[in-house]
Amino acid sequence: MSKILAKNLNLWYGTFHALQNINLGFGERRITAIIGPSGCGKSTLLRVFNRMNDVVEGVKVGGEVLIDNENIFDGDFNDLVKLRKKVGMVFQRPNPFPLSIYENIVFGLKVHHLVKKKEFNAIVQESLESVMLWNDLKNKLHKNALGLSLEQKQRLCIARTIAVKPDIVLMDEPCSALDPQATLKIEELMQRLKKDYTIVIVTHNMQQAARVSEDTGFMLLGELIEFGRTADIFTAPKDKRTEEYITGRYG
């Protein structure tokens, strides 16, 4: 059964039909990559799953998205908070708050009053360990996070996301601001994280999709052209457009 299931999903920005009749399912504790050229709607699709598009004016959504069999468009406001606790997001540019490392990680916990203050230390350690930063940073937890390297910042942002204990982590081109070496390290980290989380990654880097994901979806001009096992998509694409894109002949 799919963790996330989109049925006849449509999205309009005003009159622009940005997502057209998308049907797909994301498997639990797997990494699914969404690839496609710029402007194909892959980031928009990702932002449907935690309803981040809601803040954009003039957005209309049709169809259903089921997460654990609950339609995310049915909820009232509280479900939006609930939804976003369940579905975390990592952004393109590492964006820690100009606060200490510690404060960054407990940011969500503090506001939500999810756990008692005395448990914060344990969660900070746990979160930093799962992004493999604990050993490097355990002695400078109260230093400003802006002093970290880009890669460390992105790891910290992932730690901040998983500190709220989501089920799903959405990653919107999480490595595009990083150098190749840092990119590989973040990819390693994703492999570790998939034991506990369902990961959806949007990337314009096809090699990255091929390296990290189990399933891949290829989008073009707001349509999902092809979806399947990553190995199949990259070795034996069924659609001609997919083939053209992955072999670099597109656009």
Partner: peptide, 11 residues
């Protein structure tokens, strides 16, 4: 981005 992260954390 501060607002975006904050919303994505469920605030």
């Amino acid at each position: 981005s501060f607002r975006e992260v904050s919303l994505s954390l469920g605030l």
